[in-house]
Structures are given as structure tokens and as C-alpha cells.
Simulated assay, not measured.
Amino acid sequence: MFYLITLMLYINFIDDWSDFGFRIRKLFQNDIPFIHTIGNFNRGRMVKWILSNETVNKFAQDIDKAILPKETFVNLIVYMQNFSITMKDSDICISRITYNSEVLDVNKFRPCRRDPHCEHCIRSDPSVAYSLSHRLLNLQLRLGLKRCYVKSVEEDEALFDKLCAQMYRETVYIARRGFFARDLFLEHIALCATAGYEEFYRRHWFQKATNWLTKNGCMSEFRNFNINRTKELIKYAGNDRKMKERFVRIKCELLNIECDEHATDVLLIVLAHAIRHAARFMNKV
């Protein structure tokens, strides 16, 4: 899980935050409470939200029916800034977790330090794709690592169920549409399986993910996904020649990547979940 967090935060290093590395090290100086982010296996906790008409975005019904065009979903991924939490918001809010006091008793929850901006990011709709997983990750680190709650333990856990339910719906959608967004597919499984939601433990999904590994032990994003994503970025650049050239260069770099570090690390987490689940229930197979 440590690799997942650090790779999610890499984007902020380009901003030269003098204390950023310090805060990340401080976040993990005592990782014993982090064990509490690993939930017991459970089934059915998400049913209320999976069957509910209350959704976190206006695309949920088309996602459930698997009729949302893949191109539209890719656009939603590209334009994450249109949703309640951006990558930068997420990374800032993760680093701010270090401002909370150290855990004295892992069996007791206390209020998180007040942070209106991050509270809004974590609790506000609409959300889709990475904005969903980053909201969940921030909530997970507060509940699990710092043993603190944003609203209350009950409300935060209910939000956890709601977010994972929507992530499950997206994961099923991606699988039904040919696993066209591998990294997101794996990230949703990695985070929600950590919390023990058994709906994310599907043998077929684990087998499919294993097939993405190369002989070198790496994986890369689906090629067509990178093509469509950069096409959208180039379109976004409009008449800005320098920006367009930059996105074309990014496209070439993405298409030549054989080992996507983030996707590979998340895949390893997913496969660790598969082993954990198999070990737990092997005697029942």
C-alpha cells in the first residue's frame, strides 16, 4: 500500500514543495495503525448503494447498463478537474493528514483536525473514475491510519460504502467493455478490496489482471486508452501550438511505455488481495 500512496503523490514534486517529502515520511513513521485499513472480509455492505437511485454522478445509470460510450468515460477521466476532487487536491489533503495528532489508541476514534477544504473534497459529489478513488483513499487514510473521522465514524463508514459501491459499478462497467482502462480498474479493486468488500474478489478479474503481466514482471496501460486520452488532450489544446506539441510528445511517451510503475504496483496489490482471499477461504474450495 505504501507504493500506491507514494506513486499517487509524485505529481506534486514538480512544484518543489520544500516540506512535502518530510510530510510523507511523517505520514508513515508509525504504520502500525495502517493495519486497521485492512478490513475483515464482508459481503453485502454495499447493496444499499448499488441498488439505490442515489448516485454520485449523472452517468451512473448508463454505466450500470454498460451503454456509456468508452470515449465518454475516457473524457471523464481526462477532465477530472470538473469533479469534486482533483489529483492535486487529493495529494494536498493526503499530506495534510500529518497535521493530525499521533494515534494513542488504535481502538478509539477521535475527530480529525478541522480542514474545510479537504472535508469538502472528500464528501462532495459529483465524482467519477479517479475522483472517486481519491476521495476514498483520503477517507481511508483518515479512518485507518490516523484513526480519526471527518463527520462521525458512522457517517464516514456510510460514505465509504457509498464510494466503493460506485467504484464497483465502474469496475463492472470497465470489465464488460473489454477492460479498456486497466489502471483505474486495478485501483478501484486495490482500494476497496483492502476494506474487505468481497464483491471485488472475482477470480476472473484476478486471472485477467495476471495476463497483463509481461515476462519482465511489468504491465502497461491499454494502448487504445492512451491514444484516446491524448487525443482528448490535443483537442483541449486548441490553437495553442506549444501545448499541442507537448501533448503529442506525451502521447509518444505513453505509447512507448512498457512498464507503467503505478499500474504495476497497483497490480501487485490486487494480486496480493487474491492470495489473501485464497488463503482465507482455501479450505472451503
Rank of each mutant, 00 (worst) to 15 (best):
F34S: 03
E54K: 15
T72D: 15
R96M: 07
Q81K: 13
N40G: 08
F41E: 12
I63L: 01
V103P: 00
K48I: 10
R45P: 03
L51W: 11
H36P: 02
V106S: 09
N42F: 06
A66F: 14
I97M: 05
I38F: 13
P69L: 01
S90I: 01
F59H: 14
D89I: 00
K65Y: 07
T55S: 14
I67Q: 01
K58Q: 04
T37Q: 10
F83W: 14
F83V: 03
N40A: 09
K65S: 14
N82H: 12
L68P: 03
L68E: 07
T72Y: 06
V56K: 13
Q61M: 11
K108F: 11
C93F: 06
N40F: 09
K70R: 14
Y99L: 10
M46P: 02
K48E: 12
L51E: 15
D91P: 05
I85E: 14
Q61Y: 11
S90C: 12
D91A: 13
D91T: 14
E71T: 05
K65A: 08
P33F: 07
L68Q: 03
V106D: 10
S90D: 08
V56D: 11
Q61D: 15
P69F: 09
V78A: 04
S95H: 09
K88Q: 08
W49I: 00
F109L: 01
V103N: 00
I77W: 14
K48Q: 13
P69I: 04
K70T: 07
N40E: 12
Q61I: 04
